[in-house]
Nucleic acid binder design. Sequence first.
RNA 1: GGCCCGUUCGUCUAGGGGUUAGGACGCCAGGUUUUCAUCCUGGUAGCACGGGUUCGAAUCCCGUACGGGCUACCA
Length: 505
Amino acid sequence: MSEKVRVRFAPSPTGPLHIGGVRTALYNYLFAKKHGGTFILRVEDTDQNRYVEGAEAYIAEALDWLRLTPDESPAQGGDYGPYRQSERKSQYAKYAHELVEKGHAYYAFDTSEELTKMRTDQEALGHHSAKYDRRTRSLMRNSLTLSAEESKALIEKNENVIIRLKMPENEVVTFTDIVREDVSFNTDELDDKVILKNDGMPTYHLANIVDDHLMEITHVIRGEEWLSSTAHHVLMYRFFGWQEPKFTHLPLILKPSGKGKLSKRDGAKFGFPVFPLEWQQEEETYAGFREQGYDPKALLNFLVLLGWNPGNDEEVMTKDRMVEMFSLDKIVKSGARFDIDKAKWFNQTYIHKQNVEELLPIAKKVLADNDVSVDDTFLTKYVTLMQERITLYPDFYTEGTFFFHAPAEYDAKQAKKRYTAELDAHFEAIKSIITDGNNEAATLTDNVKSYLNENELKMGVYLPLLRIMMCGSLTGPDLFEIIALLGIEESNQRIDKALVAFKEL
RNA sequence: GGCCCGUUCGUCUAGGGGUUAGGACGCCAGGUUUUCAUCCUGGUAGCACGGGUUCGAAUCCCGUACGGGCUACCA
């Protein structure tokens, strides 16, 4: 690649960043880093009606959490700013006018009522979803149908004045998409898209290509929903005489089951997040991966493989490795269904691979959120014990609650199966072993096991019972590690308590 | 409806004229673990359909079906 790569992630601040948007950002980021290029965040806030307070901050925070840090952005600036389209408003009109002058665009004055009427009229004639195009524009009020004087007067009145792109007649527009290769559209099928709105703001189509040109974007990597309007974009580049960037349209992320692309409400419906961070809007809370205890690195790893592969069997990759392996031509063409089980597996795998030291502050916070505070020595041992038993970070509490609260109830079925009052004397003996023995799990294991052996007692009876006494059920890490960590006093108390409770079962 | 894009195990995917169609998640079984989980081993399951082209198609072509996107003064 001879020119310096510049790519942008261009979300619209109309709500929280969707997981598909995160993947788009990731691919842009990886491509930029792979080629030593620049990753730009540009906020496309040209629609004031859809602007949502806090959405831009959300996007920035999400990218930060995922460490997808832009090189240029509204927050940090750059040589091609401003990076918020609302702040670039004054620039767009002149480009729209340039297109009018060149005969590639025209003014239109139709009210929304007139537009609706045209569509229903066309519908009556048997034309479904009629467009404002080469066929219908002659029926409407615009600078192509009105006299120059009439148009001028209407433009000066400035009511319902917009600029539309004029689609050429019967031309085949072909562009190359890196994923899909050649894609063609006939201009007769394309509508005259509005490029400058009545409020003076550009629509996406104009703003996007003007900014991409001004910001010297070399590669446009965006969702497949833009594929259909790319012909318009390409035409505009040609009208302006600008070099067009290379296009890559990403397959969409689909619902885990059923029809359509993954949407905002699917999170609640399927019971998993579709947003990186939790988001609240109008009394509704949308779950976030961060809040549910996903590691951002694991999320990224899961996402990178949803629609791309490194060309070999590698799955667990660091971000550096992703950068190294990334290439646009390995992007898959078809949509990918979102599978939360795989996301969980990645998260678990990442937790297993982490150093205990990295996990310490995370576990500490999870425990604190559950009103549990522990000292560092305990925490280190606890995390070491729990690390391989955890899928999501909150499991640091839920998988080990018995460490912090003595069991309130016991697995009656399993206890009854093994317990009789005759066993009490031996549990008293085990208590004294715990009391006498040093506090190492290994020593405890040896001492208790040799006691059982010497007295010809069954391990399969005493050990499960001892576990139920400590944990309430037949789950959890190594029994003697638990006892060692709980300490002599607490362990013995649990035995006493259970011995009483077992008789009631 | 029209235009555009797509279709390999349930899911993510590799493979692009000759492969026992490979890997991963999930699921199932066995082993390890006094338990659960982890871990290890094995198994399960797929080329949407119909026509061509070819000695030979999952792979190339056409059609059909199905899925997706777009069809706003939204992005």
